[in-house]
Design a protein around this nucleic acid. Structure first.
Lengths: 213, 213
DNA sequence: AGCCTAAACGGACCACGGTCCGGTTCTATT
DNA sequence: AATAGAACCGGACCGTGGTCCGTTTAGGCT
């Protein structure tokens, strides 16, 4: 650890072009990257303090020590900023699905994985409901997130030998796990989360069950 | 037409309490009712001209010849106004479900009615997508609309001898017909409407099909 | 008819999301 | 090291949703 050559992540070697092949297409300027990070951190803290929908763009800018215009250049809109925030948690969740321990990750049989997926997705969605709402349909970010879940469910259905229009069927399984639907049931109707989850698992089994046999 | 006594809608007889037992709980003042109607008409026209999300509250107020404050007192918020607009079309659709001709209305067997419901609901939702979006979760209005569809599907599932948690299952069938899901498939992924509909019908059959038998 | 009160009215006012453009700062190049 | 120019920065500015409160009006009651 004391030898700079053994630690590729620090020391005088970490110049501007240490990793020339990473990053976005035309590479982002250093100050810009610093500001992006500062803004994300500021936003995160403010969300913790005030709650998602009391966070104003001006406050985020001020806390990060930059101008308002900068926030909008980096994140396009309020929705964009929220989507970026969301992206972080979403990424770690995706990692758990791709390479985490079973039954959510690979290793269990597909039906177990599907049920674990539903439970996990439902909990995650409910936990981040406010942020997801605030992120709206922001640019292509939230599309990527959706796309991942759709692909995963589609894959599992394939493994389970489900016949039919898999992309559409997968969407149908995902739809009841969306924020508005969940909130309607849990917050408005007052159904316990366990009941909603049980309902989804029932649905999943009905979809997967082979025709007659 | 020239004799005032032959026209029950005008003339000196149409006093303040011509219909003492109609109207909301504490009865709405006449000028208030007039303004509500004028606002609804103005909003409707402006939506036709500019498209839903270019309609400003100030423009609606101006066109109806009232102040902005009045609009907000009557409809609570922008979402509220849009919800009120939506309410009208929704009401005639509900009438078609309750008492219209089969297979959407009563008279066909439940499975036919369910499939007709899905097709009709999908088309209606897509047609009013912008308005529904703009209405958001406005007060209790859009709740009433949702509640109606949920109740209807729940009833049909009951008629079809489906076992399980009917309220939750009905919600699961409704969820893929919500605006964000539909738009994702049709507008973003580019699936033809017919394909999405076929997918929903497949889903419905899988849900209804009795367990093994 | 005339009064009285609750309700409705209107438009000035505020906050926040989003845009714009003149000035500044980074980085590639020589 | 010096230069050029692209990318970035900041904060004044605008439009719109939503609030507030002094004023007006409808309609029941005497």
């Amino acid at each position: 650890m004391s030898d700079p050559l053994s630690d590729p992540l620090s020391g005088p070697l970490s110049g501007p072009d240490l990793l020339p092949l990473l990053g976005g297409p035309p590479t982002e300027r250093r100050d810009a990257a610093r500001n992006r990070e500062a803004l994300l951190v500021a936003a995160d803290e403010l969300v913790d303090v005030c709650g998602v929908d009391h966070v104003t763009m001006e406050a985020v800018a001020a806390r990060a020590g930059v101008g308002k215009g900068t926030v909008f250049r980096r994140f396009e809109s309020r929705e964009g900023l929220m989507a970026a925030l969301l992206d972080r948690s979403e990424t770690v969740w995706q990692a758990a699905v791709i390479s985490g321990p079973p039954p959510l990750g690979p290793g269990a049989d597909p039906m177990e994985r599907l049920l674990a997926f539903g439970r996990s997705r439902l909990e995650t969605t409910l936990r981040h409901a406010e942020l997801i709402r605030a992120a709206g349909r922001a640019g292509s970010r939230s599309y990527a997130a959706w796309s991942f879940t759709a692909m995963h469910v589609r894959y599992l259905l394939g493994e389970l030998d489900v016949r039919g229009d898999l992309p559409v069927l997968a969407t149908a399984l995902l739809a009841p796990l969306e924020v508005p639907v969940l909130e309607q049931q849990v917050r408005v109707e007052g159904f316990p989360v366990d009941r909603v989850l049980a309902g989804w698992e029932d649905l999943a089994r009905r979809v997967v069950r082979p025709p007659d046999a």
